[in-house]
């Protein structure tokens, strides 16, 4: 059987299919500049902005691990698991420019032992699941190196909004 499955996005319009440099597709409010992912189409996520106009933007391809975990048990359907099930790692990655955290799986072979808060990661395309004809792609994070990275990440709107 020819090994020529078509590679396609598991969900359309959320990321580019550029194999060498894929990027998440988000939106930026034309009024206040607030980013959103997935793309915002209704009203700006900034509660102080009345904006309703947005432009599509490619988000930063690199970020730093804000937090992480793994999934040691096999999730139920609709998750499609390999046999036997291999636990996978998940990271919430801070994109500095966008002031945003995006969740994603780590590439195969990376475990929580390889991760620290602050680890720099890059966006790549990875396979979420396959059927007879297609390989369905999603974004995954790949660590750039394993040196202890900047612990003092300055994210976001941190703290509780008491």
């Amino acid at each position: 059987m020819p090994d020529a499955k078509t590679r396609r996005a598991a969900v359309d319009g959320w990321f580019t299919l550029d194999e060498s440099a894929p990027a998440l597709l988000g939106s930026r409010c034309t009024g206040c500049g607030t980013f959103a992912f997935p793309r915002e189409t209704f009203s700006c996520r900034n509660p102080h902005c009345p904006g309703t106009q947005f432009e599509e933007v490619e988000l930063s391809r690199r970020g730093r691990v804000w937090s992480y975990t793994d999934c040691r048990y096999q999730p139920p359907p609709p998750y499609i698991a390999a046999e036997p099930y291999e636990p996978f790692a998940l990271a919430a990655v801070e994109l500095a420019t966008e002031q945003m955290v995006v969740m994603g799986q780590l590439v195969d072979g990376v475990t929580v032992a390889d991760l620290e808060v602050g680890t720099e990661v890059e966006l790549v395309l990875g396979t979420l699941y396959e059927d007879d004809d297609h390989e369905y792609l999603v974004w995954k994070w790949r660590p750039l190196d394993r040196s202890p990275a900047g612990a003092g990440s300055a994210l976001v709107r941190g703290g509780s909004d008491a």
Binding site: F37, R157, S160
Partner: peptide, 16 residues
């Protein structure tokens, strides 16, 4: 959604 959170060290709904 987790990616919409303003913080991962608190649950703002509880505070509110």
């Amino acid at each position: 959604a987790l990616h919409e959170k303003s913080t991962y060290v608190g649950l703002p709904a509880t505070t509110l």
